[in-house]
Write a protein that binds this DNA or RNA. Structure first.
Lengths: 318, 318
DNA sequence: AAGCCCTGATAGTTGTATGTTATCACTGGC
DNA sequence: GCCAGTGATAACATACAACTATCAGGGCTT
């Protein structure tokens, strides 16, 4: 009849539960820190909103009606859910107890994260990452659409909506089969690569373009027909003598402890590197924390992986 | 800082969830039936109450922040609980879908309820009784204190706070061992009882007082030393020849289909009955329903038990 | 039987929370 | 370079939840 429209407030539920527990309006009012008329009014409002009588009042006291009895539990559930909500919120409000969706390329994640996540977890126990792998372009796109909160990826496009912090430079090593004529040098003259078959990944990986550009410059052939779908595949193809390849330093550091059947070297006077950055939307409310996090990551990487990569020093970048 | 005091409203949670689903303030506002500025204001209020940023706004759209992501589920839980509350309330509001706490004496409940509850359930499927047994005095007291919503008991005290409706008269039958000298008559001259040992229940049962008063009048001895604690005990004591007894008609109707070893009769020209009533607090919001219920009960009892009891006819009592 | 203390209900008022409309400032696509 | 779309802001209206002061009745004590 006169209901419809407004929905009872949380306060009204609080009042209901308290009166139901105390069975006395004045005491309940005192417990709630409000005046007794407020309670009377609000309980009345709740009652005729619901079209039910929750309490049997008399001059000698208050009783919970059968309807009130039935509803009490549900009202308590609402308040409990509300309490949960606020507990979680309070927990989040220090910024470090949140789960962030982290995007990282498959050519990097498996070879970097195992080395640094344990230390990060030790430093910030409440911090959680939901890690998803995708190619750098997709990462960047996903960052803009909100699919990721944070991406750790080779530097790619710049965009006014994205802030990034450089983390480290990772060398790209040159690998060739052990039985290759050049497989006896630690540093190879770039000139000697001319004409080699260079294997690489599918072109949606940033990696590919970099390798392609190098090959163009040195006059090597990029073997598009044999594009691998993972670094492991790529390695197998080199071992089988199908060509040579550039492989990321962290991959080699992680996977090739005893590189039998494979020779790893570098191009003399021509260090090839990719730079990885940590990036986030500049609208992200966690941006301050992300900047701090990038410093933490640099420290950890410097400590754990300085034999494989070079940590970026300056940190006042955009 | 500026929080503390007011707690976010349910509406704010509703707004949060809707914006999180639509990721667009104007669309969410339209879905909610409010204006877009209202949403902006309320979401802002919620955010700085929580001390968190829930959304990343930009001129080109809205994204859910990591914190928002984490909280969304809990906000939905609150709204769901609130919905449950209102569903239950709506269900209750027709009055018949409630569980009422029904008190009944142990000398009546087991022999009456099995005969009438199935029919009541068939007529009012949503109606539930939480049945507790206690002696009539305790029932009456419990009704006043709110322990029961409804009692079905022999007529006892009257009280301005209690309304009652008579249901039926139940005869008290006279039982004696089969080998008793009087065990060959259907109607016994009350004079013949003088000097008999009459067994009865503990004195907190209304039953006891009635039997005691009859025995006083007829000059029989009430065997207080052998007060039984249940009608079954009482019956066993009679069978064992420890005395005679008055037993409620419904007990005999329910339990003694072939009364071997026990003779059942009545006192000639001296029908002894107890009247049972349905009673409730006159402050009970269900009083109209209870009155209707008493009529329903009378109908059912008339139909099912008219060979054992006499249903009260008038129904315009207080 | 009278009086007192306790109960919840009511009247009248006020400040604030929550909503409105009108408008701005900026982004991104065509 | 314009236009359609985004969320933010300002100024104002209203509803409502709070207060204080008071009332009316029940039941226990004297």
């Amino acid at each position: 009849m006169l209901s419809e429209g407004k929905t009872p407030s949380l306060n009204q539920l609080r009042y209901f539960v308290t009166v139901a527990r105390q069975l006395n309006f004045r005491r309940a009012a005192h417990a709630l820190g409000v005046s007794q008329p407020t309670l009377t009014t609000q309980i009345n409002a709740l009652e005729n909103h619901l079209g039910l009588t929750l309490f049997e009042r008399s001059r000698s006291g208050t009783l919970l009606s059968a309807h009130g009895h039935a509803l009490l539990h549900y009202a308590e559930q609402v308040l409990k859910a509300n309490l949960h909500f606020h507990e979680v919120a309070r927990n989040l409000s220090d910024g470090e107890n949140t789960m962030y969706r982290l995007g990282i390329p498959p050519t990097l994640g498996p070879y970097l994260l195992p080395h640094i996540l344990p230390d990060i977890h030790a430093l910030k126990p409440g911090l959680k990452f939901y890690v998803r792998e995708a190619a750098p372009d997709q990462l960047f796109q996903g960052l803009l659409t909100g699919e990721y909160d944070l991406i750790l990826s080779p530097m790619s496009q710049t965009n006014s909506q994205v802030q990034s912090q450089p983390l480290f430079y990772e060398p790209l090593k040159f690998v060739l089969p052990s039985d290759h004529p050049l497989a006896d040098q630690d540093y190879i003259d770039p000139e000697q690569i001319r004409g080699e078959q260079v294997l690489t990944l599918e072109d949606r990986h940033h990696f590919h373009h970099q390798v392609q550009e190098i090959c163009m410059r040195l006059g090597a052939n990029v073997a598009r027909d044999y594009e691998g779908t993972s670094l492991d595949t790529l390695r197998q193809m080199v071992v089988m003598g199908m060509g040579v390849a550039f492989l990321p330093g962290l991959y080699i550091h992680s996977e090739l402890h005893k590189p039998e059947a494979l020779h790893v070297c570098e191009l003399a006077d021509m260090p090839i590197v990719r730079q990885h950055v940590l990036a986030w939307r500049n609208t992200s409310p966690a941006r301050a924390f992300f900047r701090e996090l990038s410093a933490v990551m640099r420290d950890i990487i410097r400590q754990r992986l300085s034999d494989a990569v070079t940590v970026t020093e300056s940190s006042s970048n955009v």
